[in-house]
C-alpha cells in the first residue's frame, strides 16, 4: 500500500484531538501546509512542541486549537512578537494556554533523549537561571557519577506524532533533507509516528548533498506539497519570504486582520501551494 496520500488524508488519518504533536523545522523547512490542514480540520486540544513556535504555532494558537505549547524561543525571528501566542499567555485569548519552556540547548537535549529511548538528557547549563527554578517538573539536577559535577537533567520529549517538511521522498517513502537540519532528525526519531510533506517525489533521492535520511519504515505517511514550507523555505527549491515574516507583525497584532487572513489564506483553500 502506498504511503503517498493527499494532505487531507494525511492529517485526517493520523492526527486526532488531544494529541501531542511536534511540527519541527528550525527556521528552514517549517511544515506550514500541514499546520494549515490541521486548522482546516479543526483538530482541538492539541499539545504543540516546537523549539521556535514561529508563525505556524501563532496561527494554530490564534484559532483556538492549542491547549499547551512546549518551546524554547517564541518570537517572530528578527521582527518581534508572536501576538497570538502573547495574547494567549498574557490574557487567555482565545483560550488560556499552558506552556513548558526550555532553552534551545536543553530542548535539543530533550529531543535527543527522546530519540535515544532515554528518560532524560544531560546538559551543562541552567545553573543560576530562573528557568530551572520555575520548572522543576522537567528540569532537575544530577551529580556526575565520575566527576561529581552538578549537571542539569532534562526530561525527554516523545511526541505522539512529528510532522516535518522535506525536500524529497522516493516512491517507497524514504525521505531526504539538506541545508539547515535543526532538530528534525531527533524530533522524528523521538516520535511514535512520523508524517512528512515533501517538495518532490523522485525515483531516486538526490545524493549530492549531505543531510538527513529517514528510512521508509519509520514514516507513516507522505504528501507531496510543493511550497509546503512557505513562508519558510526549502533549500534548493525556494527562498525564505522575509517580507511576509515582517508583514505578519501587523496581521498577528490585530485580531480581525488575523481572522480575515485565516479565512482567506487557510480556510478557503484546499491545500497550500
Amino acid at each position: 500500500m502506498t504511503k503517498i496520500v493527499s494532505l487531507q488524508e494525511l492529517i485526517a488519518g493520523h492526527i486526532h484531538e488531544g494529541q501531542t504533536l511536534a511540527l519541527e523545522g528550525f527556521t528552514h523547512l517549517i511544515p506550514f501546509a500541514a499546520g494549515h490542514e490541521i486548522i482546516r480540520q479543526g483538530i482541538q486540544n492539541l499539545t504543540l512542541i516546537r523549539m521556535t513556535p514561529d508563525l505556524i504555532y501563532d496561527q494554530l494558537i490564534g484559532v483556538g486549537l492549542v491547549k499547551k505549547i512546549v518551546f524554547s524561543w517564541g518570537g517572530n525571528p528578527g521582527v518581534g512578537s508572536l501576538y497570538r501566542l502573547r495574547d494567549a499567555i498574557e490574557k487567555g485569548i482565545p483560550q488560556p494556554l499552558e506552556w513548558e519552556e526550555h532553552s534551545h540547548a536543553a530542548m535539543a537535549c530533550a529531543y535527543q533523549a527522546g530519540a535515544s529511548g532515554l528518560p532524560f538528557g544531560i546538559l551543562r547549563g541552567y545553573t543560576g537561571t530562573d528557568l530551572a527554578k520555575e520548572n522543576p517538573a522537567y528540569i532537575k539536577w544530577v551529580d556526575c557519577p565520575f566527576t561529581g559535577e552538578k549537571l542539569a537533567a532534562i526530561k525527554a520529549i516523545n511526541p505522539d506524532v512529528t510532522i516535518i517538511h522535506a525536500q524529497q521522498a522516493d516512491k517507497k517513502g524514504n525521505v531526504k533533507i539538506w541545508g539547515i537540519t535543526g532538530v528534525q532528525k531527533e524530533a522524528a526519531y523521538a516520535a511514535k509516528k512520523v508524517l512528512v510533506t515533501v517538495e518532490e517525489v523522485v525515483d531516486e533521492l538526490d545524493k549530492t548533498y549531505q543531510g538527513i535520511y529517514i528510512p521508509h519504515w519509520l514514516v507513516a505517511g507522505i504528501t507531496k506539497v510543493p511550497g509546503g514550507a512557505h513562508p519558510s523555505y526549502a533549500m534548493g527549491y525556494s527562498q525564505r519570504n522575509n517580507q511576509f515574516y515582517k508583514s505578519w507583525d501587523g496581521i498577528s497584532k490585530d485580531m480581525s486582520r488575523f481572522q480575515e487572513w485565516i479565512e482567506t489564506q487557510v480556510m478557503n483553500k484546499t491545500q497550500d501551494a
Partner: peptide
C-alpha cells in the same frame, strides 16, 4: 544580514552546516 537565525544565506555561505544538538553540544558546551 540575516533576518532570522536560519535564513538561507547563512546556510549557503557556511563552511559547514550541522544540526542544532551538535552546535550546542560539540561546539558551545
Amino acid at each position: 544580514l540575516p533576518l532570522s537565525i536560519g535564513d538561507d544565506i547563512l546556510a549557503a555561505t557556511a563552511s559547514s552546516v550541522v544540526s542544532v544538538p551538535e552546535i550546542f553540544s560539540y561546539w558551545l558546551q
